[in-house]
Design a protein around this nucleic acid. Sequence first.
DNA 1: GATGAAACGTTCATTGG
DNA 2: CCAATGAACGTTTCATC
Lengths: 157, 157
Amino acid sequence: MAENIVLDRIDRKILGILQNDATQSVAEIGEAVGLSTTPCWKRIKRLEQAGVIERRVAILNRDRLGLGVTVIVAIRTAKHSEDWLDAFAEGVSQIPEVVEFYRMSGEIDYLLKIVARDIADYDRIYRKLTKVADLHDVSSSFAMQEIKSTTALPLLS
Amino acid sequence: MAENIVLDRIDRKILGILQNDATQSVAEIGEAVGLSTTPCWKRIKRLEQAGVIERRVAILNRDRLGLGVTVIVAIRTAKHSEDWLDAFAEGVSQIPEVVEFYRMSGEIDYLLKIVARDIADYDRIYRKLTKVADLHDVSSSFAMQEIKSTTALPLLS
DNA sequence: GATGAAACGTTCATTGG
DNA sequence: CCAATGAACGTTTCATC
């Protein structure tokens, strides 16, 4: 499943362009990386088939949608059964306002990022959350300012 | 700047489609929402010009890129000057492995999400981070499992 | 808003170098 | 890898209902 795919400098350049702006034509991307259309197109197809490029999406503006509130929710749970954990993961994942959801190491068991319209809206989602899981130790921290938020992954190293 | 734009049910449907899959043609999207190509195309253009649709990007697969480690970093700072904060925000934002960066309310001042190749790579980034800011109270939590991670915002409410 | 059509650009596959 | 082609498809605009 996780085939090793080798990426050279040109592949990385292509990926860097696409993860910042996927509206460019293959010809434009090719020019930017020093390739003509055909080989550039073949590389992109290869990257898609290898699963390196997962999908192409539109990124929407949170403020324009009235989603001004970002909350980080830290959850501690007592030990629970595998079944309970599966149901918890599934139930929380279903909530559309939960945009990120991690199982953590250390003191906190789960970390969520929730996007809401306002505090009242967050309260509604919070209730939904606690109803799903009957959680006890839940702490919410509000983001006052989004300084950086990108879908672009680091490509060099 | 933040003009109020009114979105009806069809606009929301279009946005819902685009933020999950931006490869569909205008004709396909139109069909899905019960519109012919031209009016659907006009709506999308309007949503772009209004800034609701911010950009179109390719989402890459972290594992295929060898970026298996996600770290949440919580930072507490002593009170600092406006200038220091600006320099801090700017410096940290420059680090490509920092993919999210929030100023928080409550006990923690800043929260970062960092993507790294492995623990050694994270250590390298951590050093870069502390060099940028000369930070004292920094705590790192590792994500053991990414249960959900989406760029799709909730559109109803 | 729907429709049809026209002009144009892009994609994709193929050929040959 | 490049260059060149061509058919298919998508986008964009326009005129008309």
